[in-house]
Design a protein around this nucleic acid. Sequence first.
DNA 1: TCAATCTATTTGTCCAGGACAATTAATGAA
DNA 2: TTCATTAATTGTCCTGGACAAATAGATTGA
Lengths: 310, 310
Amino acid sequence: MNETLNSVLSISAVERETGLSKDVLRKWETRYGFPSPLRDNLGERAYPLAQVDRLRLIKRLMDMGMRPSRLVNESDENLNALALASQTPQAKVNDGDVEKLTLDKLRRQDPSGLRQLLYRELMRQGIQRFVQDTLTPLNHAIGEAWACGELSIHEEHVYSEAVQGLLRDTIAKLSDYQGTPRVLLTTLPDEQHGLGLLMLAAVLSLRGAYCISLGTQTPVQDIVEAAEAHRADVVALSFSNAYPQRRILPALEELRQRLDGEVEVWAGGAGCARLHSAPSTNFQLMPDIDQTLVALTRWQSAHQDQAEVN
Amino acid sequence: MNETLNSVLSISAVERETGLSKDVLRKWETRYGFPSPLRDNLGERAYPLAQVDRLRLIKRLMDMGMRPSRLVNESDENLNALALASQTPQAKVNDGDVEKLTLDKLRRQDPSGLRQLLYRELMRQGIQRFVQDTLTPLNHAIGEAWACGELSIHEEHVYSEAVQGLLRDTIAKLSDYQGTPRVLLTTLPDEQHGLGLLMLAAVLSLRGAYCISLGTQTPVQDIVEAAEAHRADVVALSFSNAYPQRRILPALEELRQRLDGEVEVWAGGAGCARLHSAPSTNFQLMPDIDQTLVALTRWQSAHQDQAEVN
DNA sequence: TCAATCTATTTGTCCAGGACAATTAATGAA
DNA sequence: TTCATTAATTGTCCTGGACAAATAGATTGA
């Protein structure tokens, strides 16, 4: 059932490696003629590595908003060209050019140098500016560098580990058990990107909130239970661009329904930025940190009286 | 296509929430008559929450080695009884009974108290004993407490966040860029449990190895690239009990094949303990930390000469 | 009695190909 | 141009059948 020698993968292996579901892989095959896997002696699909690489690249581009029919039958060169072309020219230039230095450290495989660099920036700017002015554009830049092949995925992993370590450390030091509101942070299953979450937690902690982080990929049921157990005032979710757009609102609706009415639902992350529809009053979309801070301030002043009563 | 109101979930939602694949959900339905989802107006399966809870419990028990046919048609009471019965009476009693204290902190929703407790233990025992004598049985205990419903999943999340934070911190302080061997640590896709990885990294760092952590769920292709880029001497993978047994060896074989022959492959974690078969010379299984340390010592003495030559 | 080999059952994964709603693109009217 | 309607695209779901790998049970030999 599995890839016997080297150089071919089973359909479930490809699903795991590319993030494209088995159904999608099979449909593309009949609809577009790509991928066109070999068959093993059992008649089961066996994908050559070259095709898997190509699928990975296509997935990248799709996460950036392109459509499969455009991509699937394009030549390899055109595909790479598209990846390059889709780079957003980043207007914002960092003072000191942290971006270049970061990329440099990553390419030289120097994680401790990277950690040092980031720590220095954090100390120089303070948490909030660091997160907003340095980390946010930096994440962007890293993501794009990866998307057009300038950086390999493991270098991105190293980056994200470094940032996570730094932020966790910072949050732990700021954490105040008595803080308000009590914010529960996590992502839904299928959403693995926890970086935004940590950035949020850092800024919120700084402003006096008490953050409970559940890490990534928490099933809805568990979120509901956790919110109750921790007596959370707010449940904050993060959605990256990779999260399927059309699932965001339904998921929020469902969560909203299952949570106690007193608990607010905040949704942040780049995935929310593209949502134009239904600014429901049941929950709040906050594509950037600023808006989250506005919400925080609103919450804190709205609950001031109550705090005095207690 | 999605759960309209509350109280029912689509098949893909259930897949996400329980970890049981769509294929399995459908097969169980025809084979065992459970689950028996409703149908929405489109004829698509709609799983009531009660059934999802039951599936979750069944999955828990299966991860502990039971078989579905035994479980699926059992009454709810029997299922719970089974969960309780399957607890391994933990012979090892910790001095000071850290276990009880930890459970207590978790139940009282006191993460900072927990962190303090763990930190104190770490300082008292030193890293290696802390990891081996405290953390390992503690993980066990927490896992079991969760499996029989004494602890909810979010409490487990809180525990794991606390431990991770502590370990990351420790590792960062020990990290020596010049250390040998250079060990790349990660898990394969589908394996989310990164705790063992961190424990390993802590102990290895202490013994002078240089650890590069990629976090969890790295596709094989990326592991191969990362190993090359970081000039890793060893790739260490971790498998929990939840990882499908039968996939472990093929996955290791594949990785072995795609990696440079010089690079060693180490596989650790509870998931390996049950593997009796094929002690291949191509890679090493190390169900506990002790064996990993043996391997480390072996590596270091085998490469001593070489180090002197360089 | 215990261990090892063989057989039967269980179980997860895969396949084909059809259906359909939701999304996105294209078209025409105001 | 802008909005609304129609057409194409695309992901997900469905059924029901096939099969190998894993496991349990039975049988045999020491």
